[in-house]
Amino acid sequence: MTYSVAVAGCTGYAGGELLRLLLQHPDVTIGALTGNSSVGDRLGVHQPHLAPLAERIVAPTTAEELAGHDVVFLALPHGTSAAIAEQLGDDVLIVDAGADFRLSSAQEWEKFYGSPHAGTWPYGMPELPGAREALAGSRRVAVPGCYPTATTLALLPAVAAGLIDASQISIVAASGTSGAGKSLKPHLLGAETMGNMSPYGVGGMHRHTPEIVQNLSSATDAEVKVSFTPLLAPMPRGILATCSAPVADGVTTESARLAYAEQYSDEPFVDLLPAGEWPQTAAVAGSNRVTVQVVVDETAGRLIAISAIDNLTKGTAGGAVQSMNIALGLPETAGLSTVGAAP
């Protein structure tokens, strides 16, 4: 069976990455491509790398345009997905790449996003406990944020196996500028970002913080607290996340690696690197692969876990397609690759 797919927000970075992956998917055909300010434009004006779709015309993002498809991907600004989703039928699979339905706590949503909570959908990170079962057959999927994807997968085995004090987690993660979206912002101009790294959302202010806590809490009964500092790096793609926490008594690098190897032994997109090798963003660019390494700093008494992802692929569009595959009963790896592009 071939599934018809529509993409709302087709001219943005997430929408473009979705289309790049869907063009390689054996079980889908691409239907409506919609936007807002770009309505009436050729897609090639905005996504020149998508040659097979270059002559397609961007339609308005309305329920009428999106109706009649088996799958609708929403790559829209936060707070705008719910209005569209409620107009589409229960029989269509809606995969939301925005944040609207990620959080289970209405209080946390309102605190970090400042608007009423739209609800909670099955969460599109298959590697979490029980996630695949929740996604199978679902007609609604909330795609994780890019930082939560990188950091959760770096820390999940450590939290699940009780290797660390989960109430004292510290995360510093650097992201490429595409994570901020495609709209024009002065601080993202090339002249501002080249040769420069800068922090933002410091002191528990970043919106992905409650999502990271929510994810890790699903793997433990212990209290989870996270200090998260994001950095803007002078590169277009990628996230490198360095995560640490006090290590539990008796945990060594060897025992930690065993726990990680067991946790990820059957995961098609998560690779625990050989001892001594470290994640790097260039190695995962354009792929749905996550690379992870773990070590115990015996002097500091802390476990350090590092991960690398492509924020647009596994961090957004790849995770969305992976979740769609599970929801539709397709092979989980369909249309996705662990092969990156280098240099």
Rank of each mutant, 00 (worst) to 15 (best):
139 R>I: 01
157 P>Q: 14
203 G>Q: 09
194 M>R: 14
146 C>L: 12
198 S>C: 00
150 A>I: 05
170 S>Q: 09
144 P>R: 15
143 V>M: 11
196 N>A: 12
176 G>P: 00
185 K>G: 00
187 H>W: 13
190 G>F: 04
198 S>T: 15
152 T>A: 01
158 A>F: 09
173 A>M: 05
152 T>P: 02
168 Q>A: 13
195 G>C: 07
196 N>M: 14
183 S>H: 13
160 A>C: 04
191 A>H: 09
185 K>L: 08
203 G>K: 04
168 Q>H: 05
195 G>K: 14
173 A>Y: 00
157 P>K: 04
179 G>N: 15
179 G>H: 12
183 S>L: 11
169 I>F: 03
139 R>D: 01
146 C>Q: 13
185 K>D: 01
151 T>K: 07
144 P>A: 08
139 R>P: 00
154 A>E: 12
154 A>I: 09
193 T>E: 03
175 S>Q: 10
163 L>V: 09
149 T>C: 11
140 R>V: 12
140 R>H: 11
136 A>P: 00
151 T>D: 15
171 I>D: 10
177 T>S: 11
143 V>L: 11
163 L>I: 13
153 L>G: 12
171 I>A: 02
165 D>V: 01
198 S>D: 04
184 L>F: 05
202 V>E: 06
200 Y>L: 11
187 H>T: 07
187 H>Q: 02
202 V>H: 02
195 G>R: 07
164 I>D: 00
179 G>W: 02
203 G>C: 09
157 P>G: 08
206 H>P: 04
137 G>S: 10
161 A>T: 08
175 S>W: 00
148 P>S: 03
165 D>N: 04
206 H>Q: 07
175 S>I: 02
205 M>T: 08
143 V>P: 02
165 D>F: 00
138 S>P: 13
158 A>N: 06
182 K>N: 10
154 A>K: 12
183 S>I: 09
144 P>I: 12
182 K>E: 09
177 T>H: 14
138 S>R: 01
156 L>W: 14
171 I>N: 05
152 T>Y: 05
139 R>A: 01
